[in-house]
Structure formats: structure tokens, C-alpha cells
Amino acid sequence: MDKNKTKIKQFDGSLFPSADVLNRLAISENGFIFDPASGNSFTVNQTGLLIIDLLKKEPDHKKALASIQHQFNVSSTTLERDVLEFARTLREWLGIP
């Protein structure tokens, strides 16, 4: 096992939009996302699509992150930092204060 793949110890899942919010999004295969509540639209890459898909299916964000870490060769520190940044951007795009 890659030594960088340390266990994810703590992650504040509340920073992510709720599953209800993620489930209302219209998401195309190309990563184009439309939020029917805010009217905002934006695009994400394949990694972003994967993260959103996992978070919709897995209410335990820590498990979702572990699954992402399993698929990418990345340290837990880097993963948490990047995912938290993605969460912040998602909240901004979706108009969540």
C-alpha cells in the first residue's frame, strides 16, 4: 500500500451541500450541472462528477472520501484539502451561504 494513503482521520461533512441538494441537481454525462432551485449552472470535471456521485450515494462522507482515496493515488492530507476546496466551491455555485 502506498505510504501516502494514510487513513482519513477527520472530515467535516457538513461543509458539503446536503444529499437533498445534490439529488435535486440535473447532471449531464459531460459534467454540466444545473441547479433548478438557484438557477445556477456550472461544469465539473470527471473527478468532480465522481465526488458528487459518491456523496449522493454515501451519506457517510468519511466513507465516501475513503472510496475516492482508494481510486486515486493521493495522500489523505491532499485529498481532504482538495475535496474541502471543492465543497466550498460547490456551496458558492449553489448559492448556499
Binding site: 444545473f34 433548478p36 432551485a37 438557484s38 438557477g39
Partner: peptide
């Protein structure tokens, strides 16, 4: 320009 939404 605008887009239809549903805001509860």
C-alpha cells in the same frame, strides 16, 4: 435572458 427554476 433567464432560466426557469423552482424556489420553494
Amino acid at each position: 435572458a433567464g432560466v426557469s427554476i423552482f424556489d420553494q
